Amino acid sequence: MGSSPFNMRSLFALILLVVQTATALKFDLPASSGGNERCIRNFVAKDQLVVVTAIVGGSKGDGQKVNMHIKDSMGNDHGRPKDIVGEVRQAFTSTADTAFDVCLTNQLVGRSGSNTPFRDIELDVEIGADARDWSSIQAQEKLKPVETDLRRIEEMVADIVTEMDYLRAREQRLRDTNESTNERVKWFAFGTMGMLVGLGAWQVVYLRAYFRSKHLI
């Protein structure tokens, strides 16, 4: 019994809904004279495109200054836009499997009309297939909307497979390290026990020789 076109379209629409559902992170960032900082951490695989989009509320001259700093755990800087108002976008390609931080700082630089000044922040981080400009790809390659969506899903699945392969390899390395450590601990314990037994035997022999020399036994 074959599936009806309606059911196939419904299933495809559901897949697209699940894949495309993504919400940006929204929060309020209070200002302080020392600079109130908030960081968001993500993981990225090697050679993946990352696009960071920040939408900052407020206006110039309201006594607040929002700066953004994107950095990874390898010590690389990927952008330092300053005094952000409105939308700013930073893109980079990762050079290694690493974690990266998107840090936003709100510094109080002048008088504000509020006793507790803050800026509205909307932060969106897109990685891999999500970060690509699919509208441009569709126009360049003259793809139909369904073909574009299929391409996007295919690349997202490829990203997931790549990440799973990385996690599998990492788990293998951790397991090998754990087994190696257990083996070393076992032989260290055996060596320690052998040294203690040898020391005990030596003490017995030494004490017997000592007492014999004193004619006590």
Rank of each mutant, 00 (worst) to 15 (best):
R111N: 09
I70A: 03
L11K: 06
H69F: 10
G110Q: 12
T93E: 15
K186E: 08
Y166F: 15
V197Y: 08
R173L: 11
Q107T: 15
S73W: 12
Y206Q: 10
R184L: 08
R80D: 08
V88E: 12
M68C: 12
L150I: 15
M68G: 08
M68H: 06
A139G: 01
K142R: 14
A45W: 01
Q64G: 08
L14T: 13
M1Y: 06
M193Q: 03
V66I: 13
I84T: 06
V19M: 09
F6V: 12
Y206P: 00
D130P: 00
V18W: 10
A13I: 04
Y206D: 14
I127W: 07
G34F: 12
L167N: 10
P81M: 07
H215C: 03
K65E: 14
G57C: 06
V185H: 01
K144F: 09
R41E: 14
F100K: 01
T21S: 11
D77W: 03
G194F: 13
V44G: 04
P145A: 12
G86T: 03
A209P: 00
L104Y: 03
A131W: 08
D149M: 10
R38K: 13
I15W: 07
D72V: 03
N76H: 11
M195V: 10
M8W: 02
M164E: 12
K186F: 09
V44I: 13
T177Q: 14
L25V: 11
D28S: 13
A54Y: 02
C39P: 00
S3L: 15
D62G: 07
K65F: 05
N182D: 01
G57Q: 03
P81H: 08
V197I: 15
V204S: 07
V51H: 02
F190I: 11
D176T: 06
S10D: 13
M164H: 09
G57I: 02
D28W: 05
F6W: 02
M193I: 14
Q90P: 00
L123H: 05
G63K: 07
I40M: 08
K142S: 15
F6L: 13
T192A: 14
R184Q: 07
D133T: 04
V56L: 01
A209T: 06
K26E: 14
G75Y: 06
G110Y: 05
R212C: 03
R212T: 09
T53W: 02
I121M: 10
T181Y: 05
N7S: 14
R89K: 15
P5H: 05
R184K: 10
S136Q: 13
W134C: 01
G63T: 11
I55G: 01
N106H: 02
I84W: 04
M193A: 15
L150G: 00
N106M: 03
S32D: 14
D83G: 09
E155W: 05
N115A: 13
I121C: 07
Q140R: 13
T192I: 12
Y166Q: 02
S3K: 10
G191R: 01
S136V: 04
T181E: 03
G200C: 06
G198R: 00
R173T: 13
S213D: 15
E183M: 03
I84E: 09
Q90H: 04
H69T: 11
T23Y: 10
E163Q: 11
I70N: 02
T105D: 03
L216K: 10
